[in-house]
Design a protein around this nucleic acid. Structure first.
Lengths: 143, 143
DNA sequence: CGTATGTCAGCTGTACTGACATGT
DNA sequence: CACATGTCAGTACAGCTGACATAC
């Protein structure tokens, strides 16, 4: 029932590097990490509702509503009611949001992606992809 | 210079699963994740100074001082001056801290370790170990 | 009516920077 | 003296829950 000492070390190393990565990710952007994540996703996937974005980012709708509200204050996204369903709010990038995203990409946005391209071999990328699947399984594990 | 669309997706998936894992880790414990991390580390490595713990967890000494102060208020750890260097503060588990850690292990502590033992094959564990090294390289990458 | 979507308010946890006291 | 260690105060960020309004 008890985890082995070796597994505990592995788990500890994982926990520490997760924390480091999260903090480095946070510190890299002019806007916040959550905001950058939303901008990038809208750019990749186009207009989405708040609930859709929340589901994709795996946070509560209330949390995403706040992030989207912050982005709207900065003029980077635009909200409009869904003509087909008055409850839904459609979120899309503004011209200013697209420009900001482009500009930021040349500096700091997409940092993980750039690091992956610069640092990892093809083999490494395959290992990372497999490991992401493992991490997802761990996250979903129930005692 | 620009990352490929595929790498961007990989990076996005990684970012999302990192966030999920961090949040799940946080929600699993009676005490906070940082507190649990410190208790576990003291148990594995014995008495350490605040600076030592901060370095191992890769956070600033000021942050660790706060975590340690919280644990002291709960009576789970004990602070004592280093007889050999009056600037240093040695931190060790109290009897109550050891008891709390033991008790919690049977419920929620060491959750990642338990999940790894339960969910991952020997091959998976090797992949994870390799991936942790890759994540460390990514974290240290400089543009 | 019940259900779904989004919002408002308040809270917790985490770690940061800058300024400082004290000990070597 | 300078340097190291730790602490205090203030700030930023991220996400949560509960209560609620509105639309289907």
């Amino acid at each position: 029932v008890t985890a082995t000492r070796l597994t505990q070390s592995l788990a500890g190393d994982l926990r520490v590097v997760l924390g480091q990565l999260m903090r480095r990710l946070r510190s890299m952007h002019g806007f916040s990490l959550s905001q950058a994540a939303v901008l990038g996703r809208l750019d990749r996937e186009g207009t989405m509702s708040i609930g859709d974005i929340a589901a994709a980012e795996r946070v509560r709708p209330q949390s995403m509503a706040q992030t989207v509200a912050d982005l709207e204050l900065d003029g980077l996204i635009e909200r409009s009611p869904d003509p087909a369903d008055g409850r839904r709010v459609l979120v899309s990038l503004t011209a200013s949001g697209i420009a900001t995203l482009d500009e930021d990409r040349h500096k700091r946005e997409g940092w993980i992606a750039l690091a992956i391209d610069a640092e990892l071999s093809e083999h490494d990328r395959e290992v990372l992809e497999e490991a992401i699947g493992l991490l997802q399984r761990l996250e979903r594990w129930q005692d």
